[in-house]
């Protein structure tokens, strides 16, 4: 009951901010349309709709980090969290209340991207469902990263770190905008040490029903999701004790 109430509040705060809708949904859709238009004029295999859509959906998830981190940082600064800490809400209520409501938002964002992709020519098959489901570990990773950043940084810092830095890193290091083999070397090694490109390749493999190829990427993304979630929970609990 308490968790449900707090989760509902989190969802309302995020969905009622027009900037969230604009960036979280509008921006990925514009990118799909724009890059598909480029592909129509100058064919680039990377921008073919079956290859592009998984990249754009993972890129879209990076905005969820911004949403959750901004909300938590604002709550800390406005003393709302302080007030809520004096209520019977438990630490688990706070952590799940901040993270769980963002999962359906992540799913909705991906579904809308795939609807547009189908309209642009992506074949409508059951593998789209598997591809959307395969985004779950990446969604957890990005949402937990938001909990972590919101527990450490202030609103302005969150804007810079999660809004500018993380979204760009996600784009560059996921192989969405350019093939990582074109750069190669250390850049490619760093990219493959991070979860972004694995999240994209996992989704591409699921979309193409290439399940054996998906497994190593799934393990990579799951590992990051678990580690970042554990770190986020620890940091949130620490700030709950100290800041309170």
């Amino acid at each position: 009951m308490r968790l449900l109430t707090f989760s509902g509040r989190t969802a309302k705060e995020i969905l009622r901010d027009p900037l969230n809708i604009g960036f979280g949904l509008g921006f990925p859709l514009i990118l799909i349309l724009l890059l598909s238009a480029i592909q129509a004029n100058i064919p680039v295999s990377l921008f073919e709709i079956a290859s592009l859509t998984p990249g754009i959906t993972v890129f879209g998830l990076s905005f969820l980090t911004l949403f959750s981190a901004t909300l938590i940082a604002k709550d800390r600064e406005s003393a709302l969290l302080q007030r809520l800490y004096t209520t019977p809400l438990t630490a688990a209520d706070f952590i799940f209340g901040y993270t769980l409501p963002i999962l359906p938002i992540a799913a909705a964002q991906s579904v809308v991207c795939y609807i547009v992709a189908v309209l642009l020519g992506l074949p409508l098959t059951v593998t789209i469902v598997y591809a959307v489901l395969s985004l779950l570990p990446a969604s957890v990773f990005f949402i937990a990263l938001g909990l972590l950043c919101g527990s450490i940084f202030h609103t302005k810092q969150v804007g810079g770190i999660c809004g500018a830095l993380l979204t760009n890193l996600t784009a560059w290091l996921s192989g969405v905008w350019f093939d990582l083999d074109l750069v190669g070397g250390l850049f490619k090694k760093i990219a493959y040490a991070l979860p972004f490109v694995h999240a994209v390749e996992l989704e591409r493999a699921m979309l193409h029903a290439d399940y054996p190829a998906a497994l190593p990427h799934l393990l990579w993304v799951l590992g990051y999701a678990v580690v970042v979630t554990a770190a986020a929970v620890l940091l949130f609990l620490r700030q709950m004790r100290e800041k309170a």
């Binding site: 109430t5 509040r9 705060e13 009622r16 406005s78 709302l80 209520t87 019977p88 209520d93």
Partner: peptide, 21 residues
């Protein structure tokens, strides 16, 4: 001031009722 800015006044009051069960 500790209110949830994007919630209505009624929703803020409901939030506090909800967290108290």
């Amino acid at each position: 001031t500790a209110v949830a800015p994007n919630l209505t006044v009624q929703e803020n009051l409901e939030l506090m009722c909800g967290v108290h069960g």
